[in-house]
């Protein structure tokens, strides 16, 4: 069992999250993809903590779990708000910022 296996797993998970973020339109799947990318970074931090023999990496991963929890709360509240306003969870509906002067 070498650190490279853990690094390979973390890279694959990060890329799967990136693929989900780019290719899907469902707001919930975008949210879960972001969570997966953050979790893969915390896996890298925990592995580095073991490689370097220093507990700071584990503490950073622990703090990141808190950041993930707060991100989940805000993102889910945002999805509920958007669904209540527009009755859809399609991310292509929310394109007001990309239109510029046309809808001002």
């Amino acid at each position: 069992m070498t650190p490279n296996m853990f690094f390979l797993l973390a890279s694959i998970l990060f890329s799967i999250g990136l693929v989900g973020l780019v290719s899907r339109k469902n707001l919930f799947i975008l949210y879960m993809s972001i969570e997966l990318m953050l979790s893969s970074v915390s896996l890298i931090l925990a592995t580095l903590s073991k490689v370097l023999g220093d507990a700071s990496g584990s503490v950073m991963a622990l703090l990141m779990i808190g950041v993930i929890a707060s991100e989940a709360a805000v993102f889910l509240a945002m999805i509920v708000h958007l669904y209540r306003e527009n009755r859809t969870i399609d991310s292509d509906t929310f394109h007001a910022l990309s239109e510029g002067e046309n809808n001002a």
């Binding site: 069992m1 650190p3 690094f7 890279s11 990060f14 890329s15 990136l18």
Partner: peptide, 26 residues
């Protein structure tokens, strides 16, 4: 998108694999 992202995965893995490849006995 997976085909597009695959080189990025390899880059990320190669960058991380430059770190020492053994666990410290802790």
């Amino acid at each position: 998108t997976s085909i597009l992202v695959a080189p990025f995965t390899i880059l990320l893995y190669k960058a991380l694999a430059t770190l020492p490849d053994h666990f410290s006995t802790m």
